[in-house]
Amino acid sequence: MINAWYLYLFFSAALILAGLLCLLTKRNLIRLFIGIMVIGKGLSLLLVSTGFARANILLAQALVVTFIVVEVSLVAAALALIINIYRTTGSLDVRKLTRLKG
């Protein structure tokens, strides 16, 4: 059981790094948000697999359900922000957000 845990650990580390690399290198706002979602997938895989390896699956499931609810309201608020940014600046480029505009 513990040996299988390292397999899940390997894959969740790969997912989290893919999301971090996306956040560091991409410029499109929607693409950056996809990176955040990939990091979230890695984290929920980590939670459930740790619960599975330690025979504590019910608690892990409760935590993942809470995490998914938080993720949904985060997505709704952030996508509304992205649409507002697009209406204000006419672009989805993060570099244009550094310009101060009053």
Partner: peptide, 15 residues
């Protein structure tokens, strides 16, 4: 829905 509402997203140039 967001991609449909912001259809200029393709113009962002990645390095």
């Amino acid at each position: 829905l967001t991609i449909a509402l912001t259809n200029a997203g393709e113009e962002v140039r990645e390095s």
